[in-house]
Design a protein around this nucleic acid. Structure first.
Length: 529
RNA sequence: GAUCUGUUCUUCUAAUGGCCAGGAAACAAGAUUUUCAUUCUUAUAAUAUGGGUUCGAUUCCCAUACAGAUCACCA
């Protein structure tokens, strides 16, 4: 019988959820879904000094936006609760395991104060060893239950002296495990220090908590970032002492997402510096008030966001780059996840979004686009008449048609505002590129447009082909090349040298508005001599 | 400094011993669009270095170089 596959994402609620975090969630989610398993969210809030209000809700919202909702979470408890480590601690879950370790001799009390620890590090710091560890050698010189007599220890304990519990690592042993991505990885215990397991406030550190909770929650596979690889041996040791290696989840250490320029891990600072988001959604630090932009707010589609993250360090070998979540669930495999880190490429990220804007029906994202119109200050909608105060989305059919017409030219959602706002509000006089027509403007053209106004007034079936046909016939009659007239017409209707075909624009604008705009710009152009 | 992990075009990557090392992004050129964007076509561009093993190495082994992660009572 094989155990049910269970994976967890275990963030600490200390700030925004960045790219690497979302990718870790994604891979967890994909693997869980692929194997018909469970995906659980566990909040690792054991450090009360770093607790940030709102961070947990934020993480939940991010997962919701991405469509990666957990089967079990603090909000949706399953059979393995509670799902916040602070609450688990309150239930006394971790203390008993620390006690077990103590009893087995795999852990000990340490009474050193933070000052004493600092002193020790300063004292033993050398050029070859810039960060001395509390290990099998140095612990002999410290104040702990290994160096103190049992009576002294009892006395300190009885006196309520603050203490931590440290793991006792014996040197000279080999600790190894099979990483699902990297294969066999080995460490010598000689290089491992006596990590703190239980802090002075009674809270477990990550090392103890992750092992205990993965066991209690029956986690079968644990994926996390590569930065955790160096602490893996401590976790292996804990598994061995506490529960037995045969119950340990299978580990996979995911490659890092690197900054595009230079080297190193991508950080939120890089986003500010290089002008792209690193968080899934806007994150405002409650303490500093500082806001970091999110992919959602900058106009990414969740489908594109997930897609680009999925292929940052993984591919299915077929050359396919565009994947739906469903396809990812079907095709994902850890064997094809890279070992090396990948530099984040924002241009490519934008390309992914462009592809998704094109391939998805407008109905899937028009509400989000509508929000960008509102924040962009484009409020006239409905009929497209100036002064009409409806929001763009109020006339749904027209709005959808407009978006359909311009979606190929949009990389980010706000591009729609730039590309299509003239459909809903006439360009301001200052926004009309008269300079583009003035040099070649003359009396002939003036007359042509005056006539156009008259003729167009008679058209009963106001659609693009009819308008184009009529326009060309008139141009021929006036003996002017259509090309010389198209640009002025575009400027009159659009305001600038951009946008879809002019007749499509005119058709969507409607007769009244089209004629109104032509008349208006005609009045701005210098009268013919 | 120590321990661990990596290294194919500028970037993301394919090819695990055998065709001119393929694709995508970016960039450039051309075509299309009587606008802009899109789209299409074309071009440029890589196996870190040195040794092995082999008939043959991007691929396997060793060394070197370079890069990254970690070294808290943070996760």
């Amino acid at each position: 019988m094989s155990k049910k596959v269970r994976l967890r994402f275990a963030p600490s609620p200390t700030g925004g959820l960045h790219l690497g975090g979302v990718r870790t969630v994604l891979y967890n989610y994909l693997f869980a879904r692929q194997h018909g398993g469970d995906f659980v969210l566990r909040i690792e809030d054991t450090d009360q000094s770093r607790y940030v209000a709102g961070a947990e809700e934020y993480i939940l919202d991010c997962l919701k936006w991405c469509g990666l909702e957990p089967d079990e979470s603090p909000e949706r408890p399953g059979a393995y609760g509670p799902y916040r480590q602070s609450e688990r601690k309150a239930q006394g879950i971790y203390g008993q395991y620390a006690a077990q370790l103590l009893q087995q001799g795999h852990a000990y009390y340490a009474f050193d104060t933070p000052e004493e620890l600092e002193e020790m590090r300063a004292k033993y710091k050398t050029a070859e060893n810039p960060s001395p560890q509390y290990n099998h050698i140095l612990r002999e010189k410290m104040k702990n239950s290994l160096t103190l007599s049992p009576e002294q220890v009892q006395q300190l304990l009885a006196a309520g002296t603050p203490y931590v519990i440290r793991i006792r690592v014996n040197p000279g042993e080999d600790v190894g495990f099979t990483d699902l991505i990297r294969g066999e990885v080995h460490f010598s215990t000689t290089g491992i220090d006596d990590k703190v397991l239980l802090k002075a406030d009674g809270m477990p550190t990550y090392h103890l908590a992750v092992v205990v909770d993965d066991r209690l929650m029956e986690i079968t596979h644990a994926f996390r970032g590569e930065e955790w690889l160096p602490s893996a041996p401590v976790h292996i040791l804990l598994w061995k002492y506490l529960f037995g290696l045969e119950h340990m989840p299978q580990w996979a250490h995911l490659p890092l997402i690197l900054k595009p320029d230079g080297n190193g891990k991508l950080s939120k600072r890089d986003g500010d510096r290089l002008g792209f988001p690193v968080f899934a959604m806007n994150w405002t630090d409650p303490a500093s008030g500082e806001t970091n932009k999110g992919f959602r707010e900058i106009g990414f589609l969740p489908q594109a966001f997930l897609n680009l993250l999925a292929v940052l360090g993984w591919n299915d070998g077929s050359g396919q780059e565009l994947f739906t979540l469903g396809e990812l669930v079907a095709r994902f495999s850890l064997e094809r996840v890279h070992k090396g880190g990948a530099k984040f490429d924002y241009d490519k990220a934008r390309w992914f979004n462009h592809e998704w804007i094109k391939r998805l029906p407008v109905a899937d994202y028009k509400d989000q686009v509508r929000d960008f119109f509102v924040t962009g200050g484009v409020r006239a909608g409905g009929t497209g008449l100036p002064g009409d105060a409806h929001l763009p989305g109020d006339n749904d059919a027209k709005f959808t048609k407009v978006l359909e017409l311009v979606k190929d030219r949009c990389h980010l959602l706000p591009d729609f505002v730039q590309q299509a706002s003239f459909f809903f509000t006439a360009p301001a006089d200052s926004g009309i590129d008269l300079a583009a027509v003035q040099p070649k403007w003359n009396g002939e053209k003036q007359l042509f447009f005056a006539e156009l106004l008259r003729q167009f007034g008679f058209i009963s079936s106001w659609d693009a082909p009819t308008l184009e046909k009529e326009f060309k016939e008139m141009a021929a009659a006036a003996a002017i090349k259509p090309g010389d007239l198209l640009l002025p017409l575009r400027i009159m209707l659009v305001g600038g040298k951009f946008g879809p075909g002019v007749f499509d624009v005119a058709a969507l604008l409607g007769k009244e508005e089209t004629l109104h705009r032509i008349k208006h710009v005609l009045g701005l152009l210098p009268p013919s001599p």
